[in-house]
């Protein structure tokens, strides 16, 4: 069936209160979507942040991080998702969170490493010269200076994860992708179109909120124009 009035169907779908309510409704799925994304980013950050900061503080032994980050681009998220979902981790949300954490880790790791490593040598030496221990210099001097770039890495990872959670639906998971996959399955293209717009809006909104958060985290003297931190 090809509904010629897909746009009308999409608007009708969005205006149906039943679509929004209940355990499988848009609101519940949005909460689930953001919860899964949050879990994946937290998991990735818990491993990648300390490791990246430590490697950057050491000043050597982290050169493999950038190639790792670039290589991770070549592996399709979908492939890792399906491998995890087929290897005893169970279907649905759990393998999705783990797979997305794997993809979120490289940008967090690489940015944290670069951020701490690129702190001006003379600043670091001044801190040590004032009698700060290595750990104190890291905590009081290097980390605050590194914060904007660390936050940029977290933001990149978070935006990417919020987008990729939509893929969970392919392996029986939840999140907003459910409406797309189910819509295609049942040929309800109005629902497909409406849900796609909702997902796109959610991603743009998350990106905007995180950009604002990153700006607020950046000490005022370090703020430049807008979004000065390299993101690619």
């Amino acid at each position: 069936m090809r509904d010629d009035d897909v746009l009308g169907a999409a608007i009708r779908w969005l205006n149906d209160p039943l679509v929004w309510q209940g355990p499988g409704g848009v609101l519940a799925r949005t909460v689930e979507h953001l919860g899964m994304a949050g879990a994946a980013v937290l998991l990735a950050a818990a491993v990648a942040l300390p490791l990246g900061v430590w490697l950057g503080h050491q000043g050597r032994g982290g050169a493999w991080l950038i190639p790792l980050t670039n290589t991770s681009l070549a592996l399709p998220t979908l492939a890792l998702l399906m491998i995890f979902a087929s290897s005893g981790l169970g279907f649905g949300n759990r393998p999705t969170i783990i797979a997305l954490a794997v993809f979120a880790a490289p940008p967090i790791l690489a940015n944290a490493w670069t951020a701490v490593r690129e702190v001006d040598r003379s600043v670091r030496e001044a801190a040590r010269g004032m009698g700060m221990s290595s750990a104190r210099s890291l905590a009081r001097v290097e980390l605050p200076l590194a914060l904007p770039l660390v936050a940029a890495g977290l933001r990149t990872a978070a935006v990417q994860v919020v987008a990729s959670v939509s893929l969970a639906a392919f392996v029986g998971g939840g999140g907003l992708g459910r409406f797309l996959v189910d819509g295609f399955g049942t040929r309800r293209y109005g629902q497909v179109l409406a849900a796609a717009v909702l997902i796109a809006l959610l991603c743009v909104l998350v990106e905007a909120v995180l950009a604002l958060g990153q700006r607020l985290l950046t000490p005022v003297p370090l703020r430049t124009g807008r979004g000065a931190v390299a993101r690619s």
Partner: peptide
């Protein structure tokens, strides 16, 4: 920032 899945679903 728009996911590919959503973009494909909007174009189709």
């Amino acid at each position: 920032t728009v996911p590919a899945l959503a973009l494909f679903a909007m174009i189709y």
